[in-house]
Simulated scan of single mutants.
Amino acid sequence: MILAIKALAIWFMILVLAVANGMLREALLVPGLSRTPGLVLSGLLLSVLILLVTLLAVPWLQITRWPQAVGVGLGWLALTLTFEFAFGRLQGKSWSALLEAYTFKDGNIWPVVLLITAAAPYLAARFRGLLP
């Protein structure tokens, strides 16, 4: 239970970074670089931020077994997808508009960000020597 609460706290931190990244993308990256390079750079930046936060936080999570790392990553993925679809629907976006983010259209690498989100706890724990 403690692991789940800690993982949720870290996910909220990642969520704040993702929102800030989205604001940066819309305010500077896309207007300054155009749509495709702005989306790619934003996705890469968010992926790096997720990995850095996870790398710093994984000792606090006290992950000692790979199933824990995989469980945290899958939990973060589920939370992210739930938030993304719920927030999009609350904004009045259609399902087709929401699903367009998963097509790599115009340089959108959101599926890569999701893969990084799911894999980050395992990768960070391995990198920090917490897992064999």
Rank of each mutant, 00 (worst) to 15 (best):
A7V: 02
F104W: 05
G73T: 01
N21V: 02
I109T: 02
M1L: 11
L33G: 14
G38I: 12
R65S: 08
L55F: 13
L33H: 13
P37A: 08
Q62G: 14
G32V: 09
I50M: 14
S42I: 06
G43S: 15
I10P: 06
K6Q: 12
G75A: 11
P111A: 02
L15R: 05
L98C: 01
V53W: 12
L79D: 05
M13E: 12
R126Q: 01
A124W: 03
A119R: 01
A86L: 09
S47W: 08
V53H: 12
A97F: 04
T64P: 02
P132D: 07
L28N: 13
A97H: 05
W11F: 15
A120L: 00
V72A: 13
S42G: 15
M23D: 13
I109Q: 04
L77K: 05
P59M: 10
L3T: 08
M23W: 15
G43K: 12
A124F: 02
L29N: 13
G73W: 06
L46C: 13
M23S: 13
I109K: 04
A118L: 00
L90E: 06
L123D: 02
A69M: 06
A120V: 00
G38F: 14
L79K: 02
R25C: 10
L55S: 15
G43R: 12
A69N: 05
L8S: 11
T54E: 14
E26K: 13
T64Y: 06
V72W: 08
G22H: 14
A101H: 11
T117E: 07
I2N: 07
A27R: 13
M23L: 15
A101V: 00
L17V: 02
V113T: 03
G22P: 13
P59C: 11
F83I: 07
L17C: 10
P59V: 04
W110M: 03
G88Q: 06
G71N: 10
E100S: 09
L74H: 05
A20D: 09
L77Q: 07
A69E: 04
G129E: 00
M1I: 09
A124E: 01
P67D: 11
A18V: 04
Q68M: 08
T64L: 07
P37Y: 10
L41H: 14
I2E: 07
P31G: 15
A101E: 09
E26Y: 11
L41R: 10
L99N: 07
K6V: 03
D106G: 05
L49I: 09
E26W: 10
A78R: 03
G88S: 06
L17T: 03
I10K: 09
V70N: 10
A119G: 01
W66K: 06
G92E: 03
L55W: 14
F83V: 10
L98G: 05
V70E: 10
